[in-house]
Structures are given as C-alpha cells and as structure tokens.
Amino acid sequence: MIRPDRIVALLLIAFSIGYGLLAWNYALLPFEEQMPFKPNTMPVGLAIAGIILAVAVLIFPGGHRGLSSDADGWRRFDWISTGAIFLLMVLYALTLRPLGYVLSTTLFLVLGAIVLGERRFTVLIPVAAITAYGTWYLVQQVLGVFLRPWPELLI
C-alpha cells in the first residue's frame, strides 16, 4: 500500500500546480507588465519550488512517518467521537448567528461533552450555560466586541 505521506505529497503537487496555474494566468495590468517585480513573480517561483519539493518528498519521504506508521494505533483511535465533534463544530459555526451566541455555545458545550461520554447533566448544563453567558459578558462588555447573544427572532 502506498505510504500516507506519499499521498499527501501527491496532493501537494496538485496544489502547487493549481497555485502555479492561477499565478501564471494572473491578469496583469498594462503598467504591471513592464515592472521588474510583478504581482505574480514570487508566486510563480513558489509554485515551481513547491512542485520540486513535493516531488522530492514523493521520491524520498524519509523515515519519519508521523503517527501513520503506527498501524495498530489507527484502529484504536476514537474516530467516531472525533467525527461527531467535527460535525458539532460545523453546526456551531452555522448556528452561531441564527441561534445567538449564548444558546449555540451552550448547545455546543453540552453536546460536545455528551459525545465524549459525560452524563451528569445536572452539572454539565449549568457549567455550559454559565461559561457561555460569562464569556459573552466578558467579550461584549469588557472587550467591547459585539456578539449577538440571543436568537435573531427574539431581537
């Protein structure tokens, strides 16, 4: 099976080529074409360096394979909870405005802890609610950054 770091190197070759194409096709303004240093001069150079280095990693990936070398470890990792937490983070980002900061944060903290196995709701819910309200108070009242606290419908 192909080593995971080689797959990443392949993806980075694709990324560098894509970046290079965008840089090469960058629409220069007429006066920019005469300049010794154009807006795409360094990006084109970077794309070339990126492709060369990514090909080099593909050919000589080295001995250090990160955690991917621990084949058994992969299976013992808790992928389901991690995936669920990722989904929760996306949901949090999407509900932050419609539900308001306090409600969406409380939900994120409570659901996050439930996913990780917490079942003492009498402790969990108050802790989450106090944290959500407390941080809102700190951010808006002390730091002066506006955060909509309650759902859009209520305001």
């Binding site: 937490i85 994120f108 903290l109 996050g112 802890a113 990780l116 917490e118 969990l124």
Partner: peptide, 9 residues
C-alpha cells in the same frame, strides 16, 4: 469530557 469541548470552544 469537559476539558476538550471547552478548549475547542
């Protein structure tokens, strides 16, 4: 269980 959601938050 408590720590991780808070750090992420």
């Amino acid at each position: 269980n408590y720590l991780v959601p808070f750090v992420l938050f």
